[in-house]
Simulated scan of single mutants.
Amino acid sequence: MQRFPQPLLTGYRNFMTGRYTVERDRYRQLADAGQTPHTLIIACCDSRAAPETIFDAGPGELFVVRNVANMVPPYEPDGQYHSTSAALEFAVQSLKVKDIIVMGHGRCGGIKAVLDPNAAPLSPGDFIGKWMNLVKPAAEQIQSNSIMTTAERQTAMERVSIRNSITNLRTFPEVKALEDGGKLQVHGAWFDISNGELWVMDKESQDFVRLDG
């Protein structure tokens, strides 16, 4: 029999003797009553930027969707498979979250790839390349800016991508209706892995402002 990864077994045992012991009643309540998270977070798959860790969230508090480069596609009811759109639909329509946060982060591999004109597909399917086409037009504009350094282009693209995803969020009719009616708020955030800083997008200017720690 193939062995389960040892670090995960160790982590699970620590969880059972630590956090689960402390929060046992909360887990049992969630099992019986179901989940009622207050916030949907659309985050990147990157292992260094886990929303539950960054926001010190307890069980049942956050509904988290993670994909490459924390992107939201536009509303496309075309009969195809749309995992991010499905999760968004469930969070808004069924769970009735009050806030949606698109959270990007520094040193994102997906953003780095879309900015690299010489990036080669990782497989014949080129799933990442096709997915990152969602922000290709913006990436081409940033690529052409020779005044900016590579690091500056990377950070700029990470933040532009967040704005692009928020624009796409508002193409979903229910999201737009709830936001216009004051029943849902949409936010942008960017997390700096290297120093733990969280930057939040100002709704009026769309600039990113660093939160005090």
Rank of each mutant, 00 (worst) to 15 (best):
A69Q: 05
S47A: 15
E174L: 15
S161F: 01
A138W: 00
T149K: 07
V97Q: 04
T21N: 11
D78W: 03
A49N: 12
G79F: 07
G125I: 12
G11M: 07
W131G: 13
R13K: 09
E204K: 12
W199K: 06
M132N: 05
M148T: 04
F208M: 08
R26L: 13
P5G: 14
V97M: 08
A69C: 12
A57P: 01
F15I: 11
A177S: 13
S94K: 15
V92G: 01
F55W: 12
V68H: 06
F90I: 14
R163G: 07
A156K: 11
D116T: 08
P73L: 14
T17F: 02
G129L: 06
A91S: 09
L198H: 05
D56E: 12
D180M: 11
S161A: 15
I162G: 03
K112T: 11
V135S: 02
N164Y: 01
T53G: 02
R66E: 15
F15P: 02
T17C: 02
D212T: 13
I128L: 15
I101Q: 00
Y75F: 13
N195K: 14
G182I: 08
F208C: 11
G104K: 00
M103Q: 08
L30D: 03
R48P: 01
A113G: 02
D46Y: 04
G60L: 02
M103G: 06
P59K: 08
I166Q: 01
I100F: 01
Q80S: 12
L62Y: 03
H187W: 15
D202P: 01
G60H: 00
T150Y: 03
R13M: 06
W131I: 14
I54F: 02
A69M: 09
E89K: 15
K183A: 15
Y20H: 13
D56P: 00
E179F: 07
N118I: 05
L184S: 05
L9N: 05
Y27M: 10
V200G: 05
V114E: 04
A91N: 01
F172D: 00
